[in-house]
Write a protein that binds this DNA or RNA. Structure first.
Length: 153
DNA sequence: TTGGGTCCTG
DNA sequence: CAGGACCCAA
């Protein structure tokens, strides 16, 4: 399967259904195993993503930031460098504007939760995941192109 | 029972 | 990232 491509898709969708994923990999003969693997990949992508978000949010709090709305993500921030290195290693594509928005919202959600001491509760991240799951955007049609990966080079 | 998901490991 | 334990909804 195409790990590189799946990672790039993450910039648009964090919680894609297996049905949607299949549409974007028309060249793959899906079965129980590889679909599960693809779904698992996104689960791993989210893990990395949320870990970074929580880390960054806690850092903002430790630096004395008071309001979540004061949290902004610059295109040249360290956070962006890390995310880009993980999902878009060779800068295959330009990071879509909406992803920046999603990152900002995620950071604010974590910030508010931590600031409000919610992070001591049982499954405090669940509510955050729920919010973020609604921020998926449609994946560009060109991802369906048979020679998508080749066009990146 | 399954298919997703998360969490924690290796 | 892959595996496996474990949870939840369909």
């Amino acid at each position: 399967m195409h790990l590189r491509k799946a990672k790039l898709m993450f910039f648009w969708v964090r919680y894609p259904s297996s049905a949607v994923l299949k549409m974007y990999f028309p060249d793959i003969k899906f079965n129980k195993n590889n679909t599960a693997q693809l779904v698992k990949w996104f689960s791993n992508f989210r893990e990395f993503y949320y870990i970074q978000m929580e880390k960054y949010a806690r850092q903002a709090i430790s630096e004395g930031l008071k309001a979540a709305d004061d949290l902004h993500v610059a295109g040249d921030s360290e956070l962006y460098r890390v995310l880009n290195l993980h999902y878009n290693r060779n800068n295959h594509i330009e990071v879509p504007p909406n992803f920046r928005y999603v990152v900002e919202q995620t950071l604010r959600e974590f910030f508010r939760a931590i600031q409000g001491g919610k992070d001591t509760e049982q499954s405090w991240k669940k509510s955050i995941y729920k919010v973020i799951s609604r921020l998926d955007d449609p994946v560009p049609e060109y991802f369906k192109s048979p020679n998508f990966l080749e066009q990146l080079e």
